[in-house]
């Protein structure tokens, strides 16, 4: 199908659509209000729930912080609490940044560029999160055992390290490689869009 045929087909469709009147005032306002309500409740979705769980865990750890009685527990505790508060905030901010692209005043190409840039920022945050997970794996276990069981796993005769560390390492390696391949795929698609925009300038 060449362009001229496309134009003819499009024009035929236009003729058929022109005289149809299916929308009523009530329907239009209902559609708008329904969508508005949905946007207002957007934090209840899974990313918001994930953040709330992290904040609750951080608060719980803060209340138990006095149980961390050696320097390495204090350092690990600070990192764990920091991770549970800062990372969800960064993720939520980057998601909101994508939602806040100005669809009303931007031109089509401005929207495309804004989308690609914000998507890249979001993926960078996710990537940082993946690396931090490895550190969290190492530091959160002693903190949690100390807080909830009162044991120092570096001193107490505990075999937890023998099964926890290998299992979590395997899980994290798989999770990270999945995350990284997704990152590369999306970055490649973003580059393709930017290349298309560059081509247009020529």
């Amino acid at each position: 199908m060449e362009l001229e045929e496309m134009q003819a087909t499009w024009s035929e469709m236009n003729d058929q659509l022109e005289h149809q009147r299916k929308l009523t005032d009530k329907l239009i306002m209902e559609m708008t209000k329904d969508r508005y309500r949905n946007k207002m409740g957007r934090l209840s979705r899974y990313e918001g729930m994930g953040a709330l769980i992290c904040f609750a865990a951080a608060i719980l750890l803060l209340f138990q912080f006095h149980k961390l009685n050696t320097w390495y527990f204090v350092v690990s505790g600070v990192f764990t609490i920091g991770y549970l508060i800062v990372l969800p905030i960064l993720v939520l901010r980057s998601i909101n940044a994508m939602r806040d692209i100005d669809l009303i005043n931007n031109t089509y190409t401005e929207t495309l560029i804004a989308y690609v840039e914000k998507r890249k920022q979001f993926l960078l945050t996710q990537r940082i999160g993946i690396y931090l997970n490895f550190i969290l794996l190492a530091v959160s276990l002693p903190v949690l055992v100390k807080v909830f069981k009162g044991k120092d796993i570096f001193i107490a005769d505990s075999n937890i390290l023998y099964w926890y560390v290998p299992i979590m390492t395997i899980f994290l390696v798989f999770f990270s490689s999945w995350g990284y391949s997704k990152y590369r795929r999306i970055t490649a698609s973003a580059s393709k869009i930017l290349q298309e925009l560059d081509d247009t300038k020529n």
């Binding site: 199908m1 659509l17 329907l27 869009i193």
Partner: peptide, 29 residues
């Protein structure tokens, strides 16, 4: 949500299908 609809015209529908398939190969811009 109520959408408009083309009249029942299999020939036009077929041509529109081809048109939509063609434009899927194009970039966003």
């Amino acid at each position: 949500v109520v959408l408009k609809q083309e009249e029942d015209d299999p020939l036009l529908e077929e041509r529109l299908k081809i048109l939509y398939t063609k434009i899927k190969d194009l970039g966003d811009v």
